[in-house]
Design a protein around this nucleic acid. Structure first.
Lengths: 115, 115
DNA sequence: GACTTATATAACTGAATCGTTATATACTAA
DNA sequence: TTAGTATATAACGATTCAGTTATATAAGTC
């Protein structure tokens, strides 16, 4: 059961703006349970590396993901400590696990040493 | 207790894009329980009438609000029949009732024959 | 050190967004 | 029918956004 933390409307807007983009929404769904590195996102979304980096920066500056550096890689995962985490998980729970886009992305998930 | 209806990621994006604007998010919070006409929004948000109309059009085309014509007025209220309604109510429930912006708006609420 | 790999940042472009003012439409009332 | 009120739409400008390519940074390897 999710905790209901209430926030200001402008705080909620920060979270919504961050995930109102289809790429970033799916990214969040992917890191809800997993930890993924930039090169994995690039593979999965078939998008340029800078595009992915910029999406991740937006998610990070909204506080939705946290960054974990290991070696040359930077891993991203959902920031559970964020004030937005309860709202975000709530939103993500509305996405069906059978969503074709989501399944297609997970199909393309490669091991970390992909690149 | 809210029903959890799962939707496709792109459906969720439609809803999120519609309410990721601070004005529209607050509009939805206001029509969550009330039915309001355009002129009331104009008073409350201190924004031009066309700006309000355009926000309402976006909310309507996303299916989040329904329109009710009575006389010369058009009243807007939350569309409970929408597939987005459960997600939307979930999002709105994260906004604190003591939000200063929200309180300020409700303070400015005028009777329908305001204009 | 030099070279490679992973990621970030900068600079740019086209499209979308949000507001404005001006105008059109629709209903009401005299 | 004419005037007034409520709302919608059109056209425009400033800003933001999401992608691109080119370049910088940082870590790993030889």
């Amino acid at each position: 059961m999710e905790t209901l933390i209430r926030q200001s409307a402008s705080d909620v807007t920060v979270c919504l703006k961050a995930v109102s983009d289809p790429t970033r929404l799916l990214m969040m769904k992917l890191v809800e349970t997993n930890e993924l590195c930039v090169c994995q996102f690039v593979e999965m979304f078939d998008m340029s590396q800078p595009a992915i980096s910029q999406h991740l920066r937006k998610l990070k500056s909204a506080g939705l993901v946290k960054e974990n550096r290991r070696g040359q890689w930077r891993f991203y995962s959902m920031n559970q400590e964020s004030v937005h985490a309860p709202l975000l998980q709530n939103i993500l729970s509305h996405i069906e696990d059978t969503d074709p886009q989501l399944l297609a992305l997970r199909d393309k998930e490669m091991p970390v040493d992909c690149c």
